[in-house]
């Protein structure tokens, strides 16, 4: 019996060690990914420091020039436009779901939002090329260039429809689910008593939301937006299918753009045949990883504290 007891304890302890080891591996996997990419990017970084890679605009792999600047600007342009388009409807939807919607409506909308989150990015890309790009080409571009064409940001030199705006629209829809679900969770964490106090003072529902709920939930809402941003920043296929992929700095929302993830995905074929090309593409992946890491860590820490302090 005593022997049996020891065996059981031994099994328990060794299982604990194995599982603990795996947990360590999982917890440090991000760092391992970063180091592996860094090791592969090193030959290029030895020749050109990261700072100059990021700020140089010259992209000609055959001459050994790898400037990421146009791609970084392209990624930022598409991502920021997507956030600009996505954030207002997402916040309003989340507020509606958390504060107004009857339980049955909420229960039928939530699965729809889950489905939206599960749609593969190539399918978003197909939708983009079939619907978003033609609408931009046939309606938005002509109309905007007639009415607002004098503003440089809206100048329509590119009649194809493939560009920053198309990428922004597709990405905006792709980040709907994450922004809505995180925002709704944060809003729900605001204690009930505070709402009742505001309502008892004669506030309408919206006044109560504006003055109590949103003020209280603000850090969490910002975190939701940052999470959406980092999700959008790394999105590859859908964006690549609708932005036109021209390595230049976009000047208007109709100009084509080339994002960092698209750069990696489009050129993997040639990267082993040109010297330092693989190092450059893996350096691009490293830059992507670092940006997403920083944004996600900030968002998660803010979010954890926001939910803790709201409750």
């Amino acid at each position: 019996m005593a022997h049996n007891q020891n065996l059981r304890r031994l099994k328990d302890r060794s299982a604990g060690h194995v599982m603990g080891g795996l947990t360590w591996v999982a917890a440090t996997l991000v760092i391992a990914i970063g180091l592996a990419l860094l090791a592969r990017a090193q030959p290029l970084l030895d020749l050109q420091p990261l700072g100059s890679l990021l700020t140089s605009s010259e992209w000609s792999p055959l001459r050994g020039q790898f400037g990421f600047f146009p791609f970084i600007v392209g990624t930022l342009a598409v991502t920021l436009l997507a956030m600009f388009l996505a954030v207002p409807p997402c916040l309003l939807t989340a507020i509606y779901l958390a504060e107004y919607a009857p339980a049955r409506l909420r229960q039928s909308v939530k699965p729809a939002i889950d489905v939206l989150a599960g749609i593969p990015s190539v399918v978003y890309g197909v939708w983009g090329t079939l619907t978003v790009v033609p609408v931009i080409r046939d309606y938005v571009t002509p109309w905007v260039s007639r009415t607002l064409g004098f503003i440089p940001l809206f100048r329509a030199d590119n009649p194809t429809g493939y560009g920053v705006l198309a990428g922004g629209v597709v990405l905006a829809v792709m980040v709907f689910p994450i922004i809505i679900s995180v925002t709704e969770e944060v809003i729900r964490a605001v204690p009930f008593g505070m709402r009742e106090a505001a309502l008892a003072l004669g506030a309408t529902r919206w006044q109560m939301i504006k003055t109590v709920v949103l003020r209280r939930a603000r850090p969490g809402v910002i975190a939701a937006v940052v999470l959406g941003f980092s999700r959008a920043f790394g999105e590859t296929m859908a964006v690549m299918m609708v932005t036109g992929n021209v390595a230049q700095i976009p000047r208007s929302i109709f100009d084509p753009a080339y994002t960092l993830p698209a750069l990696i995905a489009n050129n993997y074929g040639e990267m082993m045949s040109i010297p330092l090309y693989d190092a450059a593409l893996l350096a691009a992946a490293l830059v992507l990883l670092i940006v997403v890491l920083i944004f996600t860590i900030i968002a998660r820490i803010v979010l954890a504290q926001a939910i803790k302090s709201a409750a």
Partner: peptide, 20 residues
């Protein structure tokens, strides 16, 4: 936190890491 971060690593980065 680290697992949450892992969840948001873009899939192209997993591809690049897989490649290395």
């Amino acid at each position: 936190l680290s697992l949450d971060v892992l969840w948001s690593v873009p899939s192209i980065v997993y591809g690049a890491f897989g490649f290395t």
